[in-house]
């Protein structure tokens, strides 16, 4: 859906994007991750054609990004807001028409969305009379109303209350199921695993790692395994104990091994005490911290 090659963006003193290559597959929910100031917003602004790259090229579908593509993109910026003095309905129609919808079409769709999100009575209100949560819903509707093929959410959950966060997560996933490609930028990892199927991690203007989420987590697997056994186990061979707990069905252990603990598994299985054995994949949070703190691309465990 989006392919960036060699995209570079320089601001007066600093290099915001250093020749990055990214590819965001069609239909994916893509987590664009990175700490604050990594260059996520710079890249998002380039996709939205708010700024132009100094070098490199962005492709939308199979051709270069063009001005009229903005009608096919929905963008919820990190810094968001609405005209306070304008009525909600008018504002939604105005923003939709700027994206190229006709008034009639915009009205039809807006009414549907307002029904869905239980905000039909907002229509005639002024934005300044809405609560923060209500305004957030309006903002979300304005982002998706023109049924864009590509949705870009920059830190969508900052400032949203828990109820709206859930609502929007649900709606994002629904839009994804309906075929939209979703880019989801954040420096908070909690929701990434439940929403994203692809991630790209940027740090200091460079892509540190990119690909399907599961593949990446597998690539960063560092020999951690979990066991559930009926009886307590004292000796684990060359394994280092990370965590253990006792519960009514038995004991759980998490251990780190130098290599695949095949012998341990077969011994426990032979004793008949092994209930479950599982490879523990690192969380996105772990990978994120590891990469950012080490400041360089890690060579993943093979």
């Amino acid at each position: 859906m989006i392919k960036a090659t060699n995209v570079t963006k320089r601001y007066s003193q600093k290099l915001a994007l250093d020749a990055i290559d990214l590819s965001i597959p069609k239909g994916s929910v893509y987590g664009l991750l990175g700490p604050n100031g990594a260059g996520k917003t710079s890249f998002i602004r380039i996709m939205n054609q708010i700024t132009a790259p100094d070098e490199g090229q962005v492709y939308f579908g199979d051709r270069a990004l063009q001005p009229r593509d903005i009608a096919r993109i929905g963008y919820l910026p990190e810094e968001r807001g609405l005209y306070k003095k304008m009525k909600v309905g008018e504002q939604v129609l105005y923003l939709a028409r700027l994206k190229g919808l006709s008034t009639a079409e915009a009205k039809l769709r807006a009414k549907k969305w307002f029904e869905r999100l239980e905000m039909a009575d907002f229509w005639e209100k002024k934005v300044e009379d809405l609560s923060k949560g209500m305004a957030q819903k309006v903002q979300f509707v304005t982002t998706v109303l023109h049924e864009p093929e590509l949705l870009i959410f920059d830190e969508p959950f900052t400032g949203f209350d828990p109820i709206n966060t859930n609502l929007i997560k649900r709606e994002i996933l629904r839009l994804s199921e309906e075929g939209a490609t979703v880019i989801f930028s954040t420096h908070r990892m909690e929701s990434v695993e439940e929403i994203c199927d692809h991630i790209g991690l940027i740090n200091n203007g460079q892509v540190m790692v990119e690909g399907p989420l599961l593949d990446i987590r597998k690539r960063y697997q560092n020999g951690t395994y979990s066991f559930v056994v009926k009886e307590a186990v004292e000796h684990w061979g060359d394994g280092t104990l990370i965590q253990e707990s006792k519960h009514h069905t038995g004991h759980s252990y998490t251990l780190k091994f130098e290599c695949y603990p095949g012998t341990v598994v077969s011994e426990l299985a032979a004793k008949g005490t092994l209930v479950a054995f599982e490879e523990v994949l690192p969380s996105v949070q772990d990978i994120f911290i590891e990469i950012v703190e080490n400041g360089a691309k890690l060579v993943p465990h093979e």
Binding site: I70, Y75, P77, R80, G81, L82, K84, L95
Partner: peptide, 18 residues
């Protein structure tokens, strides 16, 4: 200034040129 302090400006310029 209103558009800037309302933070709506980025929404608008993702639809039209500045």
């Amino acid at each position: 200034i209103e558009e800037k302090s309302n933070r709506i400006v980025e929404v608008i310029i993702s639809s039209v040129r500045p």
